Computed example of a mutant assay.
Amino acid sequence: MESTQARIAVDAMGGDYAPAEIVAGAIRAKEELGVEILLVGDPQQIRDSAQSDSLRQLEIVPAEGTIEMHEEPLSALRRKPQASINVSMNLVKQGRADAVVSAGHSGAAMAAALLRLGRLKGIDRPAIGAVFPSVIAGKPVLILDVGANVDCRPRFLEQFALMGSIYSRYVLGQDDPKVGLLNIGEEPSKGNDAAVRTHEALANQSAFTFVGNAEGRDILSGQFDVIVCDGFVGNVLLKFAEAVGESVLQILREELPQGIMGKLGVSLLRGNLRRIKQRVDHAEHGGGLLLGVAGIAVISHGSSQAPSFFSAIRLAKEAVDHRVLDQIQAQYQKIAAAALEGE
């Protein structure tokens, strides 16, 4: 699909390393991806975080304050209407930006998206979709929800499956995405009551290809393109996967360079090691797309530094270029039309 020049609103004040690392990632995205960047936040802090020459091609949109991690999202958003995440979402609502990227309070980002942008028609709850690597090179798996909804009804998970299937097809390039339900066993009768009812609902639809339950050991196997679960389980899984990737990289750093032969091996395997890092390092994926809201929003890791935030902006650009919102809405229109014909 032909790429357009996406305009990305960047919450420059959100995250553990804001604004310096966020601005650095945004500058790199402007240079390498050709996107238009609107840096949202305190203008003076933004200017102090980077050289003026680097900021010259980036627009700065003033905002006042941010939502702190200890604050309750809804009340804080209402109390701080000019907070950077509120201003960022308003830019999308007003049509001045195509997408928002934030590494700040994830609950506040989701609440701001719902309040400012609203839900897509037919979607009860939005979900955060995160891309994981699999053992098959070039075949990632999309997990959702990874944090937006702690408790989920079967209907919500069915909607997650449809949105995930569309994203996997049009952005990740899987022709016929295989959808699985994260569970404690392969059999349809496994799991709690919600899992059993969800399996039945997924098996009785025709909008996507459901291939059954996925156990924990199946997640990275490449057998599934999309795996759905509630946000509680998904967030635990996401944090664990990030820790595993970091541990693998740390072990490689400690073990490979030992001795002359080790150092020689590192030099010979440099290209392989770089590819290993790209496949297991969560910074390469940048964050998760908030699917189900009427606008494109990427929620990045709170600990994001420049490389991770660059990847988050790239993810937002891909969602814009592939018109993910239009694809999801079109599928729901088809489903609604088919339901009317069946009445």
Results as ranks from 00 to 15, higher is better:
residue 45 Q to I: 01
residue 79 R to W: 00
residue 166 I to Y: 06
residue 28 R to E: 15
residue 290 L to C: 12
residue 180 G to A: 12
residue 191 G to R: 06
residue 273 L to G: 05
residue 54 S to C: 04
residue 178 K to E: 10
residue 304 S to L: 08
residue 225 D to N: 14
residue 35 V to F: 11
residue 79 R to P: 01
residue 192 N to G: 15
residue 87 V to W: 13
residue 216 G to P: 00
residue 241 A to P: 01
residue 338 A to E: 15
residue 296 I to C: 12
residue 236 V to K: 01
residue 75 S to K: 14
residue 295 G to W: 12
residue 205 Q to A: 00
residue 214 A to S: 09
residue 182 L to E: 12
residue 246 E to D: 13
residue 289 L to W: 15
residue 185 G to Y: 02
residue 198 T to S: 06
residue 2 E to W: 03
residue 48 D to Y: 07
residue 213 N to C: 09
residue 299 I to Q: 03
residue 38 L to T: 10
residue 58 L to I: 07
residue 124 D to S: 14
residue 28 R to I: 09
residue 229 C to G: 03
residue 112 A to G: 08
residue 97 A to I: 01
residue 242 E to M: 06
residue 248 V to Q: 05
residue 131 V to E: 11
residue 9 A to K: 01
residue 262 G to K: 04
residue 159 Q to P: 07
residue 173 G to Y: 14
residue 269 L to R: 09
residue 224 F to T: 04
residue 161 A to F: 13
residue 18 A to H: 07
residue 339 A to D: 15
residue 258 Q to D: 07
residue 48 D to H: 12
residue 110 M to S: 01
residue 209 T to A: 03
residue 5 Q to C: 07
residue 123 I to N: 10
residue 237 L to Q: 04
residue 56 R to G: 04
residue 203 A to H: 11
residue 316 A to Q: 03
residue 24 A to G: 08
residue 164 G to N: 05
residue 161 A to V: 11
residue 218 D to A: 07
residue 255 E to S: 12
residue 290 L to F: 14
residue 51 Q to N: 15
residue 11 D to I: 02
residue 269 L to A: 15
